[in-house]
C-alpha cells in the first residue's frame, strides 16, 4: 500500500470521527478494502455502535428520571396544598351554646398552627361575644413544654378579651407528664373530659346569664 493511499484512508477515518463527534451517529467507515487498516476501521465502527447504544440508553434513563422528578414535584405540591388545607380545617371554633365556644385540637400543636388556632379563637370570641371557651386537647398525643407554652399564651390572650378558657381532655398519662416536666398550669381552669368542661361552662353561664339577658331585654325595649 503506498503512502498516498494510506493518507486517504486515514483522512476518511478522521472525517467519520469528526462527523460522529459533531453528533451524527449514523456515520460509519465501512471500508471494503482488506488490508492492514481493516482491523482498525472495523474496531472504530464497533466503538461507534457501542457509543450509539450507550447514548440511547442514557437518554432513556434521563427521560425516565425527569418523568419521576416531575411526578415527585407534583406530589410535593399536593402535600403542601393539603397541609395548608389541613391547617385551616383543623382549627375549627364552634359556638355550641349561648355563651360557649369549643375549639377541639387534634394532632400536633406547632408554632404555626397555634398561631392560626389563636387567631381563629380570638376572632370568634370578638365576633360572638362569648365569654367561655373550651379548648379540648383529647386529640393531642404529646404535650411538651412548647405545646404547654402555646396553650398558656392562647389562654392569656383570650383572657385579655374577657373570655375564660377551660382546657379539657387531659389524659392521665399526659397529666403525669406535665407534672414531671414541671409546667405550672394552675393558672388555667382544666377539666378531665369535654363533658366536665361543658357542665362547668353551663354553670358559669347561669351565673352570667341574668345580666346578659336583661341587657338583651333592654335593647329590645329600645327598639320598640
Amino acid at each position: 500500500m503506498n503512502i498516498k493511499n494510506a493518507k486517504k484512508r486515514i483522512d476518511n477515518i478522521e472525517d467519520v470521527l469528526a462527523t460522529v463527534a459533531a453528533g451524527d451517529l449514523e456515520a460509519r467507515i465501512q471500508s471494503d478494502i482488506e488490508d492492514d487498516f481493516s482491523g482498525i476501521e472495523a474496531a472504530i465502527d464497533l466503538l461507534i455502535d457501542d457509543l450509539t447504544d450507550e447514548l440511547k440508553n442514557r437518554k432513556k434513563i434521563q427521560n425516565e428520571l425527569e418523568e419521576k422528578l416531575k411526578k415527585i414535584q407534583e406530589q410535593q405540591k399536593t402535600i403542601v396544598q393539603q397541609q395548608e388545607d389541613l391547617m385551616e380545617l383543623s382549627s375549627p371554633v364552634t359556638k355550641v351554646w349561648d355563651n360557649i365556644l369549643i375549639l377541639p385540637v387534634i394532632g400536633t400543636l406547632d408554632s404555626q398552627r397555634t398561631q392560626i388556632m389563636m387567631e381563629n379563637l380570638l376572632h370568634k370570641i370578638v365576633e360572638t361575644g362569648c365569654t367561655i371557651s373550651i379548648l379540648d386537647i383529647t386529640g393531642v398525643p404529646t404535650v411538651d413544654t412548647q405545646v404547654a407554652n402555646h396553650l398558656l399564651k392562647t389562654v392569656s390572650s383570650a383572657r385579655l378579651l374577657g373570655a375564660e378558657c377551660i382546657i379539657s381532655g387531659i389524659s392521665p398519662a399526659i397529666a403525669q407528664t406535665i407534672v414531671h416536666l414541671g409546667i405550672d398550669l394552675s393558672s388555667i381552669k382544666t377539666k378531665a373530659t369535654l363533658q366536665d368542661a361543658m357542665i362547668y361552662a353551663m354553670k358559669q353561664k347561669e351565673r352570667v346569664a341574668p345580666g346578659h339577658k336583661s341587657d338583651l331585654l333592654y335593647l329590645d325595649d329600645e327598639v320598640e
Binding site: 411538651d144 403525669q176 407528664t177
Partner: peptide, 17 residues
C-alpha cells in the same frame, strides 16, 4: 406502658426541639 410511652416521647420531644 402507656404512661412510660408518653413520658419518653415527651422527653425526646424536648430534646428534638
Amino acid at each position: 406502658g402507656i404512661v412510660d410511652q408518653t413520658r419518653i416521647t415527651t422527653a425526646a420531644s424536648e430534646l428534638f426541639r
